[in-house]
């Protein structure tokens, strides 16, 4: 898994490439927690190149979403693959996150 974080205006774009599995999940969790601790609470997760996520990744995403919303921010998703969507659907997470077809639409949602 590779994670890149780019600051776009007031929004953080987090792009994950590869698999967020049991081996990678702690790095993913630390990245999100780091953003929250730095008070960056408008976050886009770009999942276009994310092949796979597990329950640990879902836990981190929902924790970060709660923190963002507590401070009038948000964590939204962009370009979610059908496989990731299926995993989210299994635990009823599809309706929790705002999801956009691409990063541009996700960025626009914050303006």
């Amino acid at each position: 898994m590779q994670i890149t974080v780019r600051s776009l205006k007031h929004v953080e774009l987090v792009t994950i490439t590869g698999r967020i599995d049991g081996e990678a999940v702690h790095e993913f969790e630390n990245e999100l927690r780091g953003l929250i601790e730095r008070n960056r609470r408008k976050i886009i997760l770009n999942l276009a190149e994310t092949e796979y996520i597990n329950s640990g990744a879902l836990r981190s995403m929902v924790s970060a979403l709660k923190e963002c919303k507590r401070s009038s921010g948000n964590l939204v998703l962009a370009s979610v693959s059908s496989r990731v969507l299926d995993t989210m659907g299994l635990v009823g997470f599809n309706s929790l996150f705002e999801s956009f077809a691409d990063v541009v639409s996700a960025v626009d949602s914050f303006s």
Binding site: G92, F93, L96
Partner: peptide
């Protein structure tokens, strides 16, 4: 784990076992 519609209501323990 019980699925919830509101993020604030979600308790995320037991997610792996639920899956």
């Amino acid at each position: 784990y019980l699925p919830q519609a509101e993020p604030a209501n979600i308790k995320i323990g037991g997610l792996g076992l639920f899956l």
